[in-house]
Nucleic acid binder design. Structure first.
Lengths: 94, 94
DNA sequence: CCTGTCCAATACCGGTTCGGTATGTATGAT
DNA sequence: ATCATACATACCGAACCGGTATTGGACAGG
């Protein structure tokens, strides 16, 4: 499990769509799909249900989302102390 | 910054010696040295002072150590929920 | 002094990982 | 039936990571 995988997961959970999350993360869709699957495999739990419209967060996914945000929050806190502005992840200006 | 780098940093901080920390982490010394330097570079702060005996934690290093433990604690909590026993990092039985 | 020891640092190499492009598969709308 | 949408798979090249070998510097013993 890597910090990038956690960031990817949060983006997918928020967008409920891997393709859109990939755009937001500025990577392409196939690597994102792969990283999400790798994360699910490592955790031993399916986190999303794949639907025609995109993906839906399963209960296990919701549980992990809470932890993921905690982890990323701690990371941001650490980086802030060393005066690294957190990366511009908040692109709502489509 | 990767989770492994954070784990490596904590090990070095605890051992105050890169070579010993490398043994504990079951990697060799050169990659450890490199990862620590890469972390320092990314944070823009020297975390350790290199001495004849090994390394000493500088004030910036102590600050980061606190954050590092917070981050790893959150990660362990997340993994525990998904019933992954935290890795055996506590080898005090020398 | 010179030699051995104990560190971290550097050079170099091979395997793994990661992201990219292209394409496939499935489903739903018109 | 065709097209649009969204995830999955195949394949490839670049970047990353760890390993071995070696270097460089700081002591300690003789």
């Amino acid at each position: 499990m890597s910090l990038d995988q956690i960031r990817y997961f949060v983006a997918v959970a928020e967008e409920r769509n891997i393709t859109r999350a990939a755009e937001r993360l500025r990577i392409s869709q196939p690597p994102l799909t792969r990283q999400i699957r790798a994360l699910e495999e490592e955790l031993g739990s399916v986190l999303f249900e794949r639907t025609r419209r995109g993906v839906e967060l399963l209960p296990a996914g919701q549980v992990f989302l809470d932890h993921a945000r905690q982890i990323l929050g701690e990371v941001d806190r650490a980086l802030t102390v060393f005066s690294r502005p957190p990366p511009d992840q908040g692109d709502k200006t489509s």
